[in-house]
Amino acid sequence: MMHAVELRLKPQPEVLERVLRVTRHRGFTVTELTMTANEDSTLKVNFDVESERVIGLLTHQLTKLFDVLDCQVLTSSTVPVGAETPASVSA
């Protein structure tokens, strides 16, 4: 499964390392990632992950991190996030 996840993070220097370490260790592969600064000085991270595991296993672990303020799964699908659905696959 592919999932698009959005995080709001405290602006700590190591915060992205924490997120990526947990993501890898819990069995998810990052396929795309962007990070931007919000106006309130928090960080916004959007990333796509791929795994056979249930996404809740990752989001529960990310939510436990003290520098993670918010964690949302935006979309989940069986094809890469953002890729066009092949004609042979029904929606």
Partner: peptide, 8 residues
């Protein structure tokens, strides 16, 4: 107490 243990 740890919600990450539920359904893990």
């Amino acid at each position: 107490i740890d919600i990450a243990e539920i359904n893990k």
